[in-house]
Design a protein around this nucleic acid. Sequence first.
DNA 1: GTCGCGATTTGCT
DNA 2: GCAAATCGCGACA
Length: 187
Amino acid sequence: MTQLLPLSPEFFAQNTLWVAKRLLGKHLMVWDADAHDHIVCRIVETEAYTQNDPACHAHKSTTGRAATLYKEPGLAYVYFIYGMYYCLNVVTEPTGTAGAVLFRALEPVYNPTPRELKTHGPGRLCKALNITKDRHNERLLTDPSQPLYLADGITYPDAQIITTTRIGISQAQEYPWRFYVDQNPWV
DNA sequence: GTCGCGATTTGCT
DNA sequence: GCAAATCGCGACA
């Protein structure tokens, strides 16, 4: 299970909405140092955030944490929210254009050590997989030698992909930019 | 320097 | 169903 092909930076250099949808079924590979093997999680729920989107961190700012969103596609964007949780994103669009896809839910498909993996919810999945800003922010997610990388997976038929409005957004205008796998228990 | 709030989760009523 | 937990960042003084 550790030989899955990593995704290329070109994959992430495209339209954020397209990337968010196409990431469903792909895999997040997390290096487990104790087991000396990868934990494999299938991506089953995502949300898109773009430069012109009022809910995006890059909408009002190009500095601080938002600067990451303008960097090269395929980078990890990990931010701290509500004083206690991290959220994992991957940077999209070409360098100079802001964009990111938030990982909202994962389905564990290979777990080298029997452990509980609560990977439903953006804050919970970071906690379960030990993802922090210190260790993972701005690291390349297309490199298998990194502790965290994204790899190829299965393709869900369009009929199995549900599109809805995003969660937890307080802006007046909201878009149908959330994608998830129909009937998946981890969503 | 201070104030208010957020791409969330949890526990208590 | 609602509020607390708790900190980084933008807005304003």
